[in-house]
Simulated scan of single mutants.
Amino acid sequence: MSAELHQSPLHDRHAALGAKFAAFGGWEMPLEYAGGGVLKEHAAVREAAGVFDVSHLGKARVTGPGAADFVNACLTNDLGRIEPGKAQYTLCCDESGGVVDDLIAYLYGDEHVFLIPNAANTAEVVRRLVAAAPEGVTVTDEHAKHAVLAVQGPQSAEILGRLGLPTTHDYMSFENATLSGAELIVCRTGYTGEHGYELVVGWDDAAAVWDALIAAGVRPCGLGARDTLRTEMGYPLHGQELSLEISPVQARSGWAVGWTKPAFWGRDALLAEKAAGPRRQLRGLELTGRGIPRGHMQVYAGEQLIGETTSGTFSPTKKVGIALALIDTAAGVADGDPVQIEVRGKRIEAKVVKPPFVTPSVR
Rank of each mutant, 00 (worst) to 15 (best):
E135F: 04
G266K: 13
A263K: 15
T313I: 05
Q281K: 12
E175H: 10
V62A: 02
A331M: 08
E95W: 11
G312I: 11
C93D: 03
E142G: 06
I292S: 03
G25R: 10
A272M: 08
D141M: 10
G18Y: 14
P356M: 13
W265N: 10
G277T: 14
T228D: 03
A133E: 01
G289E: 06
I292T: 15
G25K: 07
S8P: 11
W265M: 10
A49I: 14
I322Q: 04
G161A: 11
A131W: 13
A16S: 14
V125T: 07
R61C: 01
E135D: 14
P166R: 03
R128C: 02
G258L: 05
L149Q: 06
L199M: 05
A133T: 01
P154G: 10
S361A: 15
R188H: 14
A269R: 04
T189K: 10
S180F: 07
A331Q: 03
Q88H: 09
E124Y: 10
E47R: 14
H6N: 08
A206R: 07
E124A: 13
H195N: 14
V201W: 03
G190M: 03
E349I: 02
D102M: 06
A225Y: 13
V62M: 06
T313K: 06
P293T: 04
L285K: 12
P355C: 11
D227T: 15
G277H: 11
V186E: 03
T140L: 12
A147C: 06
A275E: 12
V333R: 12
Y33V: 09
S311K: 12
A182I: 09
M233T: 00
T178L: 01
G25P: 05
V200G: 02
D335R: 12
E245W: 11
I246Y: 12
V209Q: 04
